[in-house]
Amino acid sequence: MLSDFDDIELEEKFDYIVLCNVFEYTKSFVKSENPYVDYLNYLKGFLKEDGVIFLALSNRLGLKYFAGFKEEHTNQLFAGIKEYFNTDSIQTFSKTEITKIIEKAGFSNYKFYYPYPDHEFPQILHTDKLINTILDKGIYRYRNERILFFEEKKLDLILSEEDLSQYFSNSFLIEIRSSDNDYPTDDMDFIKIATDRKEEFNTYTIIWSNGKVSKSPLTSKANDHIKRMFEGRKNDIGKIRCLNSEMKGNSLYYDLLKQSSYEYLLLDAVVKKDKEKFFKLIESFYAAMFYNSFESDEYATEEFLKIFKVKSDIKFHCHEKSNWDLNFNNLFLVDGEFTAIDYE
Rank of each mutant, 00 (worst) to 15 (best):
Y183C: 04
I134P: 03
D163I: 03
P184I: 08
L135A: 08
L130A: 06
L130F: 02
N144E: 13
K129A: 15
Y183R: 06
R146F: 12
L164P: 00
D156V: 02
L130H: 02
M188K: 13
E175V: 03
K137P: 04
S160T: 07
E162M: 09
I174F: 00
L157Q: 00
K154T: 13
R146I: 03
I147G: 10
S179H: 07
E152R: 06
R177M: 00
Y167D: 15
I176N: 04
P184N: 09
K137E: 14
Y142R: 02
L135R: 12
I134W: 07
D163A: 08
S165H: 00
S160K: 05
L155Q: 03
T133D: 11
D182C: 08
S171Q: 09
S165M: 01
Q166R: 13
N181T: 05
G138V: 09
R143G: 15
N132M: 01
T185L: 13
D180T: 12
T185M: 11
E162L: 12
N170I: 07
L135Y: 15
E175K: 08
D186N: 15
E151F: 10
Q166G: 10
L130K: 01
N170Q: 03
L157V: 00
T133E: 14
Y142M: 00
L164G: 01
L135Q: 10
S178H: 10
D180R: 01
N144L: 06
E145W: 05
I134G: 09
L173C: 03
K153W: 04
I174R: 07
F150P: 08
L148W: 00
D187C: 10
I139L: 14
